[in-house]
């Protein structure tokens, strides 16, 4: 029972964080593609902006791993 709940918790941690990251990156990506089309020198900045929300899923993954692995 408890193992099942832990697994659900880990799944939620990764899944919800992934949804959040996806929503954010989708918007940033579309804006970024537009910006780069007009000013190609913005590539570096756009990579950064695009990569910022990734922290959410990374942290989600870390939390999930700790839920499952740390007893």
């Amino acid at each position: 029972m408890e193992t099942g709940l832990l697994a659900i918790g880990a799944g939620l941690a990764v899944g919800l964080a992934a949804i959040g990251t996806g929503l954010a990156q989708g918007r940033i990506g579309s804006a970024g593609a537009g910006a780069i089309a007009e000013k190609p020198e913005l590539v570096g900045t756009m990579i950064i902006l695009l990569a910022i929300p990734e922290t959410m899923i990374i942290l989600g993954f870390a939390v999930a791993a700790i839920i499952l692995l740390v007893k």
Binding site: T55, I58, A62
Partner: peptide, 16 residues
Amino acid sequence: VGNILSYLRLAAIGLS
């Protein structure tokens, strides 16, 4: 603190 936690990606991406 978030900046430092962000380095977790070194582990996480590798694990995937």
